[in-house]
Design a protein around this nucleic acid. Structure first.
Lengths: 195, 195
DNA sequence: ATGATATGAACGAACGATCGTTCATAATAT
DNA sequence: ATATTATGAACGATCGTTCGTTCATATCAT
């Protein structure tokens, strides 16, 4: 299934990178296809040779973005010590979520996903996998006795993700004292799972 | 300051209610002024007799929305027992945040606030007041010994708000088992502040 | 090697629709 | 009569998309 697809044209990535730049600057709906083409340095018509339309560009971006989560998923699954895995995840994902591109683009994709089923599907897929990996880590930790038993690991996993992402979004305007705040969030979350 | 302003024309509220309906259905940027006027049952031109423009409509909505938080703020400030205040807040705000109008409109306003300074200001004001009230509640509780001392009450206040709002947003697509999930969130949050 | 044919990337004019806003004017109320 | 409230045509701009076309390169037959 991974080999019978023809390789993706490099231009497609160039266009999607240009689109990201535009979406970050002005937002998805405020960005026109002409803006993307201009930013990519190509013609309007050529953009449509690589993408079915504007929505397809966002879907492609969301897909790439989703794949970026694989690193987190692997770390959660492969780190033997659940506590080390969780602490590592919190730090790494906090750093990821507070990078302006990720924070802004994530918000953009999330709000679009609220009304766009296509985007919702692409967006939700890897995200769901990450929640499962995080919940799995919590479950293993509870079984090993390093975490307190939780009645619903998935809910706590979402809560952790929510806290980190919301903080990342907030750090856009409050660029100061992000590190101190993160330390407090980390402390609260870890305190909540420690027996 | 509250009396030297002329009373707000009832039509203005009608228009803003119509706009809310449209924004919920299609989103802010996807909604045209004609949509709002039609939904309100008035002419296009007349809308501009009551609002300076489209953005002013959203700002008005954000302002009204912000005032809706006053009830929560008062409860947090006036309830003598900090624990009762916090528990009441979690339940009430969870119910508030999971109502589709509030969840969707909140997301809409938040993303717009990311790039629109006018909206950001209107949106952030009462929100900041609520965080302060919540943090104050946590502080009083810690002093009274019913909560554990927190190194930064404001950060925990944001975390509580984030968890409830994100869950509200999630309940839009996952309309089932919202009550059970909320109970788990509540448990985790309360566990985190209990000595 | 040479010419014929096929491929697909690139272009930008043009389309119809819709956008937010303005404005001259009509209706209504005081 | 004088404001106030209402109307919808009209404006210029921009929207996402389609279209016919060009052109360099690749494939193939001879």
């Amino acid at each position: 299934m991974t080999k019978n697809e023809k390789p993706i044209h490099p231009r497609k990535f160039e266009i999607s990178r240009a689109a990201v730049t535009c979406f970050l600057e002005r937002g998805y709906h405020q960005t026109g296809v002409r803006d993307i083409a201009k930013q990519a340095g190509i013609s309007l018509g050529n953009l449509y040779n690589h993408f079915k339309g504007k929505e397809a560009v966002l879907a492609f971006i969301a897909e790439i973005d989703g794949k970026e989560l694989n690193g987190f998923i692997e770390n959660l699954a492969e780190t033997a010590d659940p506590r080390a895995a969780l602490e590592g995840f919190i730090d790494d994902y906090a750093a990821y979520a507070s990078r302006p591109e990720n924070a802004l683009l994530g918000a953009e994709i999330l709000t679009e996903a609220l009304r766009n089923e296509t985007i919702a599907e692409v967006f939700g897929k890897d995200r769901r996998r990450m929640i499962d990996a995080l919940a799995g880590c919590l479950g293993r930790g509870a079984k090993a006795g390093v975490f307190k038993p939780l009645s619903d690991e998935t809910t706590v996993a979402w809560l952790i993700l929510d806290a980190l992402e919301a903080q990342g979004l907030r750090s856009l305007s409050n660029s100061a004292q992000g590190a101190a705040t993160l330390k407090n969030i980390r402390g609260f979350l870890l305190g909540g799972v420690t027996p």
